[in-house]
Each structure stands twice: as C-alpha cells, then as structure tokens.
Design a binder for these strands. Structure first.
Length: 636
RNA sequence: GCCACCUUAGCUCAGAUGGUAGAGCAAUUGAUUCGUAAUCAAUAGGUCGCCGGUUCGAUUCCGGCAGGUGGCUCCA
C-alpha cells in the first residue's frame, strides 16, 4: 500500500495510507479528536470529513470548538430544515438556505404561507430527522446531470441557480431522500445537529429583487450544543429588555402617536434634555475643530431642488408644500443652504477649507414598512456638515473627520465598523476625481489603523463614501457616521474659488455626519447603556429624597442649591416610605439618589446613593456639586 | 411598497365557538411619618384602533384604512 504524507497546523507531518480521508487523519491523531471532528480544512479550503487526502496536503481538523464550525453547523441545520419542510409540505419548492451571522435561513416557494404552528411542526420533524442520524453524503455531477436531476424533482429555482453557475460540475449533498445543491462542507450526519431553534417567518423576494416572487423565509439558529443555544436565547431576552422603544417609554423619554403620524418623534422632557445635552456637546466639539455653525430654513423653493437634482432623483421621498402658487420642498438634506452660504460671496483659496456645521432637521418620506422606533424615522436631526476645500486638501480633511469620529465614539464607548464604498456603474464625475477621492478616503482609513471593508460599486452616484456603523442590542447594524465626497453639487451650483494663480477653480465638497441622526444615535445609545446613562448624559442626574415629611424644608433648600449650581436634579417629597422611593428612582435609572433624613438635616449634609446600591459618605451640598462636576468632565 | 402577525384601561396582559368586558401595576382619595428595590384600604378608569359590510344583535365574522412587530426591498 502506498503512503502519503500531510502537514498539520503545527507543521508536523503525518503519514497515512493512500485514499485516507480527513476523518482517517483525525483517527490517526487521536480517538478524541475523531469524535469531535466535524469537517476539515485542506490547503485552505473547507471540506467534508469524508474528503480524500493527497500527498503534500496541508490539513487542519475542524471540531465543534473551532471558530469556523458554527457556519458549517448552521448550514447543515438549514438543510435539515429544508428536508423537514419537504417532508411535511411536499409541494414546497426549495431555493437557498445559507448560514448567516445569527443563525441561518431557508427560502421556500409555497402555496400557503407558513404559520407559527407550522414552525413547531417543522422543528419537531427536524428533531426526528436528526435523531434518525441520516448520513450526509456528497457527490459531484456535471452541470447537465444536475439540471436534469432538479428538473425531474420539479425544483425550478435550483435549476435556475445551476444554470447561472459558472462551472462544469456541481456538488450535491444527500441525506435520506433529500438532495440539495451545495458547495459544502457539511456535517457527516444529521445527528450532528444537536442544538437548534426556529425563530421566525418572513417574506423575502427571490434573489432579493422586489419585482420577483415573494418567498417564505424561515429563520432559525443553531449552535454546537444546548448550552450555547441557551446562552444565545438569554442574550435575545436581554436585548428585549434593552430595546430602546421599551426603555424610551419606561423612562418617559419620547413617544410616537398615530394621530401625529408614523415615524415622527415626540420628545418628552427627559428625552429632550438628553438631546439637548448631545447637541451642546456637538456644538462644542465642532467649534473646537474649526467648524462654523450655520442654520438654514426648513423649506426651500422647488426650483432649487430641481437645480440640485434632488427633485429628479429624490422627489418620492420628499414632502412638498404650496403657498401662493409657489411650491416649496421641505428639506430632506441640509446641503443646499450651505451651498448658498458659500455662493454668497467670492471665495479665495485662502478661505478654504470652509466647514459649515448645522444641527439640521430634515424630513424624508421613508416607506411605511421600514420605520423602526428611533432607528428609522421620517423626521430627524442630523449633525451635518459640509466641507468645501481644494482637491489637494481632501486628504487632510477626511483624516480630520475620521479622527473626529474616533474621538467621539471613544467618549461614548462605542465600537464601530467602517466600510468604504467605491464607484458604482451609474455615476457621474471624471475618472480622475473619483480616483482622487477614493484614494483620499482609503488613505484616511488605512491611516486610522482600524480594519475596514470595501464595498465595490456601492458608492453614491455622485462620489465614493465611508460608512460607519454601530450595532443595536440585537446586533443589527445601523449606519451612523458617514463621509461622502461629492462632485455634483459644486458643479451644479457652479461653486468656485480664486486660486493662487488667479484662475477660477472648483472646490470639492464633503458631506459628513458624526453621530448621524440624533434620533438614531439616541436609540443605539439607549440600548448600549440599557438606559443607565453616564452622569454627563443622564437627563436627571440626582433625585432628592426625604425619609419623612419632617425633612421637606431642608430638602427643598438642598434641591434649590443643586439646581442653582446647574445640576440636573428632581425631588420626591411624597409621603411614601424611603424604600418605595428608592425603588422608583432605581427603575428610572437615576444615577444619584440624595437621601435626606433627620441625620442630614442636623449635620446639613446629604447622603448620595449611587444606582448600583453603594452609598457615598454624607457630604455638604458644595462637596456634592464639586464631585458631580468632576465626574461629568470625565464623561463618566 | 411587499409577506406574515398584532392592535382590549395610562402600562403589561386575561377574556367570550357573536348577546357591549376583567386582573396586576399606575392614577385619585383617605389612613400611615415609616432610613436604602413595592404600607394598607377605598374609588375611579374602556364606543375592545378607525370606517364599512353580514347579522335581530359585532369588541368577536368579512372587507378597507391607520398604527405597530419581525423580515424583504429601499436608504441621496
């Protein structure tokens, strides 16, 4: 018998008989490894345990503990689900079923949509099939054979997929009487699916195209073992507790009203205070960095929107109002007034860069189905700025914005993800402009030292952009900061500056937001802190509590002194037991409860209790003010 | 906009196979003056999202609309 040798991850070599598989290798290394093995990596490519090895291969065994195992487990579980669906609903046509970040899904074309009861039936069937321990086998067919096979099965979506594939052969996985087109790899048998749960049903367009048929998508999740699944479910429950819509109501921050309109936020006193704190913070930070604060009107003449191209490209999302036979567009963006400010006088290269900052409230008619709490609304305020600069200043300006983003996110304790979107097929502007702008964005990203992704062809038609995304409690990504280069508007509005040589030149425009929309940012902020805002952001920093009615006169004095010192305090002098008042303050997540009983009256002090339950020593009001001011300065 | 589901008191939720509804918390009133997560009692509170249809009768069945939830699509 011939022997082959393979290399393991630790660079050791192992000799095997010719024809040995990944599983044979695992066995040769150890029985325990063979038991835990679920797949392998050969020369950098993931393969099944049953894949044969060749002389010189570099091989690694994937076990349940390997980071890459989750995707394989989920992918196989999605096949298991498809098998269950086919067995319960033989008329269902299968389409695609990948693993995703939080689990997996599979799309089916069925006559009648699935009901929640169906979900339970399908899950039960999956358990039955898993228990049956059906081996999962791989075979390779020619494209023609595969098309014929799926045609015979009546799986027209699969036929379409295979026809579009750019390959001579395709691989097919079988388990029991179920077969699916798939690249793999997969678990060796259905019994390896040990911990899964179907989570929801949704509609989804075939191939993501809203003009094509809507399929039924079933979402589920799967893990290596029950413990990990339970942890995931616990995380979901925690996310529900942190939901900004729930906390927003409980802390009385904001509301929506169908009498007012969908997607229009009503800020209550505490929410409006939180907003104001953020806005003040923003104004200070922008002034520090050389921005000028500007302010434009809410409505601008329709003709101006026609000139900018918004009327042509964005009209569907705009609100209009007509007065005295003149149509006005309610602004969906803030750029136009900023352009008008630039144009209000002749600009010299010595004036540039100009950075106009506006906390600009905009209205966009987002489609009804997309609204989501504070995270997707129809009226919102952006921390918007437009930088007008010479092309050669672009690099420095973009770096400046990125470091601004980094500073601000650091203060809030947010981690974020960055994406660079490049020139789409439909776009305007010269190759040279695009290249310069894209390079500037990329250089700034590289300079930041953080990882980033590139979305080829995903830029705006008027220029490339950097998107910065934060995650909500459910790990959904929301775009907050964005930096976009724009070649159109300076052109359309004929913006110029006088260069050193006396020539008129065209400035470059950068649109950018740091927090994005204040509404969305607050939504993410609420979930991030679960409503426990740090002292500098807390709309109510302290609550003065009396033990009995006897302390009210002194407590009143303390309360006014704190107010005068600029501390955001409220009081609770109700005739309730202290325990009850503490409980309420705790539920309101007030950082400091300032307890006043006979002791404090006598010594002219207050005893602060932090919301984590710890007590500070009794202190004078002036000491408390100093303490709070210090904490606020540390953004704590 | 599309698919599915949901809408009952301020909030969280029960409920009747069609005969106009209940709990807890909150609110109000009274008693209690009690030092670190719920004092006790009483009272009040709902055209059962809105508009149509079927029916002797609709909160319940059907249709439309509005709002919401989870997705899809979109996101200049």
């Amino acid at each position: 018998m011939k022997e082959i040798a393979v290399t393991l991850p630790d660079n050791s070599r192992k000799s095997l008989e010719e024809g040995a598989t990944v599983l044979d290798l695992a066995r040769a290394i150890g029985a325990g490894l063979a038991r835990n093995a679920i797949a392998g990596t050969v020369n950098g490519e993931q393969v099944d345990l049953s894949a044969p090895l060749h002389d010189g291969d570099v091989v690694a065994i994937i076990t349940e503990k390997s980071p890459e195992s989750l995707e394989i487990i989920r992918h196989t579980t999605s096949h298991l689900m498809a098998q269950a669906v086919k067995s319960l609903f033989p008329d269902a046509k299968v389409t695609i079923g990948p693993a995703i970040e939080s689990g997996f899904y599979y799309d089916f074309d069925v006559e009648n949509p699935f009901s929640p009861d169906d979900l339970e039936k399908i899950e039960a069937k999956m358990r039955e099939l898993a228990k049956a321990a059906l081996p999962i086998t791989r075979e390779v067919l020619t494209k023609q054979e595969a098309i014929q096979l799926f045609k015979d099965m009546g799986e027209s979506y699969k036929v379409e997929l295979i026809e579009d594939l750019d390959a001579d052969t395709v691989s097919l996985y079988r388990q029991g009487d179920f077969a699916d087109l798939c690249r793999g790899p997969h678990l060796p048998a259905t019994s390896f699916c040990k911990a899964f749960k179907l989570t929801s049903i949704a509609g989804a367009y075939w191939r993501g195209d809203e003009k094509r048929k809507m399929l039924q998508r079933i979402y589920g999740t799967a893990f290596a073992d029950k413990k990990a699944l339970d942890e995931y479910i616990a995380r979901l429950e925690e996310a529900k507790r942190r939901d900004h819509r729930k906390i927003g109501r409980e802390l009385d921050l904001f509301s929506f009203s169908d009498e007012v309109g969908a997607g229009l936020v009503i800020w209550h006193p505490k929410g409006a205070m939180l907003r104001t704190i953020l806005e003040d913070f923003e104004r200070r930070e922008h002034l520090k960095r050389g921005y000028d604060i500007v302010l434009g009107p809410q409505i601008l003449k329709k003709e101006l929107w026609q000139r900018s191209g918004h009327y042509e490209n964005y009209r569907e999302n705009m609100y209009f109002t007509e007065v005295d036979e003149q149509s006005y567009g309610i602004k969906p963006m803030n750029c136009l007034s900023h352009m008008m400010i630039y144009k209000s006088q002749l600009r010299s290269y010595r004036d540039l860069p100009l950075r106009y900052f506006e906390l600009g409230t905009v209205h966009r008619h987002e489609r009804a189905g997309v609204l989501h709490g504070l995270l997707r609304v129809r009226g919102f305020t952006q921390d918007d700025a437009h930088i007008l600069c010479m092309p050669e200043q672009l690099d420095a300006e973009i770096k400046g914005v990125l470091s601004f983003v980094s500073d601000v996110m650091g203060i809030f304790g947010f981690d974020y993800e960055m994406e660079l979107s490049t020139r789409p097929e439909k776009s305007i502007g010269s190759d040279e402009d695009w290249e310069r702008a894209t390079k500037a964005l990329q250089a700034a990203l590289e300079d930041s030292g953080r990882p980033f992704e590139i979305n080829e062809g995903d830029g705006a038609f008027y220029g490339p952009k950097i998107d910065i995304k934060l995650r909500d409690a459910l790990d959904r990504k929301w775009q907050c900061a964005t930096i976009q280069c724009d070649f159109t508007l300076p052109e359309r509005f004929d913006l110029t500056y006088v260069a050193a040589d006396g020539e008129r030149k065209r400035p470059v425009m950068v649109h950018r937001v740091i927090l994005g929309a204040i509404e969305r940012f607050i939504g993410v902020l609420i979930e991030h802190f679960a409503g426990n805002f740090p002292l500098w952001l807390a709309p109510v920093q302290g609550l003065v509590l009396t033990v009995t009615d006897n302390q009210i006169p002194y407590a009143q004095k303390v309360f006014s002194e704190l107010r005068q010192a600029g501390i955001r305090v409220q009081h609770d002098f109700r005739n309730e037991k202290l325990g009850f008042k503490i409980r309420e303050a705790q539920l309101q997540k007030v950082p400091y409860m300032l307890v006043i009983g006979d002791k404090e009256v006598e010594t002219e002090t207050v005893t602060p209790r932090y919301r984590d339950g710890s007590n500070l020593p009794a202190m004078k009001v002036t000491e408390l003010v100093d303490f709070i001011e210090k904490e606020v300065k540390r953004f704590k």
